[in-house]
Amino acid sequence: MFRPIFAIANATVGEAIRRKVLLIILFIATLFLIIAPNLGMLSARSETVVLKSMMLGIIQIASAVIAIVLTVYMLPNEVERRTIYTILSKPVMRWQFLAGKYLGAVLALGLMMSLMAVVMSAMFLVIKQNPSEAIKLLQAVAMYFVQMSLLASVAMCISTFVAPLVNFFLSGGLFLVGTVLNPVFDTMQKSGSGASWGKGLAQLLSVILPNFATYNIQNPLINPQQQIQSEASYYINAFGYGVMYIAIMLITGMLIFEKKEV
């Protein structure tokens, strides 16, 4: 049952890591990571804080763009180039195809993010000579990886019924919304202002939509003054949430894809 999934995933990785547009994004991100230490001078803030914030910011943005660009074209390209027919005429179920494609996307994403993480750590170590902080930064990147995998699953699901360009903005929009969900929710809870229906809506949205903010754990890393209790269990829960939501997205995608005329 998993053999075709792995075979398709493998082929997908091979193709993804050769896509020019992704490589260009990766290249630019890496370049920025390398020159990031010099950009810190523009800012009035402590150099380490800016450096960390910027490096993580670069990785997050680049990864999000890669995750979306990588996945929105995945299914449409297969159809357009008719490879999907050669594959589906083999003993491969559609859901296996989709799962293989997604797995491949995540693996490719992992590879690219690893590369950026390596560059980031190297630069950080060269400039700050602080291995324990570098490891903490890697923790954040690991959380981003789960976040981006979730984003990829959203884009994948949407790509089963929407054209790539629309999907690009839809997924991107969902990412933004999913990123502000927590802060919005927070503000509403704390300010006491805002109508009760607004709060209800925020609550509803944060239950339904993928909550990308869950993985934005960089604040205490950038400003490391506070101690966080039972952080490990949060990481595990966040990972579990990601897996659940990814499963939801993929199963939904599979159900739609199963019915789709290709």
């Binding site: 091979g14 193709e15 008719r82 490879t83 027919y85 050669t86 005429s89 083999k90 003993p91």
Partner: peptide, 16 residues
């Protein structure tokens, strides 16, 4: 599917 095969019109295979 184990016993059939299909070659589409102007097939595209993974170029790499």
């Amino acid at each position: 599917h184990h016993k059939i095969s299909y070659v589409p019109e102007r097939p595209y295979y993974y170029e790499y």
